[in-house]
Simulated assay, not measured.
Amino acid sequence: MDEPIDVWVNFDVVDECDDWIVVNKPAPLIVHPTSKKVEPTLLGGLEQLLSFDIQNGARLSIINRLDRETSGLVLVAKRKFAARMFGRAMERRLFEKEYDAICLGWPAWEERSLDAPLLRKGELESSPIWVKQMVHPDGRPSETYFRVVKRGTHRGVKVSLLRVFPKTGRMHQIRVHAAYLGHPLVGDKIYGEDETCYLRYIEGGWSAKLASQLLLKRHALHASRMALTLDEVSLEWEIGLTKDLDDFFDA
């Protein structure tokens, strides 16, 4: 078996003021600690970085949460009023979010909008993966807009770089919708062609067989832009692709 995925504990500060901080979270750094095992977390790293602020009354509140294997922009409020302000903006869908994603195949379309409700699969039928979501009419409203940026190949496999604009923020929304359209994200262990990849990864870690099936150690999703205008506040942040995704597409 190959070595397990490296846990990158570093993150980059993209922007910061007295009331909030924006960081570029790498994959597979988890945002919050879990009860399953002790491991580095983004929150823990932020608490160390902002220890002086915290000693002087700051309270950290993560506004947008990313999956472990999703990289990109994370906004964190330092003050209660900032957390409330950003929270209201999220509820009113005033945040503009954009993601870069690499999917399998070459979509027949250049642009595509999908309005498909999402529901946890385990609520309807037996599922070995508790968190797995599915498209279902009884689910919560979910809308995603996809645009093809470019098409190419990776080791003979057709892949496409997408720019993705989620209109809602459901769990795994982009990944589920991409798979529903027939173009799952590269490296997606749950919503790819074989969900047993996830189960095998959980049990035994990364392996040569998984590498052959998935092509990438993590799913190819990156939160690249975030913006909002609320009252007199107008904010925007944007970052480029991570090295692993950039190198993958160019390979």
Rank of each mutant, 00 (worst) to 15 (best):
D67C: 05
F86Q: 04
E91Y: 03
I63M: 15
D67T: 05
D100S: 14
K78N: 07
R93P: 00
S71K: 04
R59T: 12
F86E: 04
T70W: 05
I102D: 15
K78C: 06
M85L: 02
D67L: 09
F81Q: 03
K97C: 15
G105A: 14
L73I: 12
R59M: 08
E69Y: 03
G57A: 08
E91P: 01
L75M: 10
F86T: 00
I102T: 14
N64H: 14
Y99H: 13
E69V: 02
D67G: 08
V76I: 13
E96T: 14
I62L: 14
R84C: 02
E98T: 12
A101K: 12
D67A: 08
R93N: 07
R65C: 10
R59P: 06
S71E: 10
C103Y: 13
L94T: 00
E91F: 01
R68W: 09
E96L: 13
L104E: 15
R59L: 08
R92H: 02
D100L: 15
R59N: 13
G105F: 12
R65V: 09
L60S: 11
K80A: 10
R59F: 06
E96A: 11
D67P: 03
G105E: 10
M90T: 08
T70F: 09
R93L: 06
A89Q: 01
R92Y: 00
E96Y: 13
L66A: 05
L94I: 01
E96P: 05
R68G: 02
E96R: 14
R93D: 01
L60P: 13
L60D: 09
E91K: 03
E69P: 04
A77N: 03
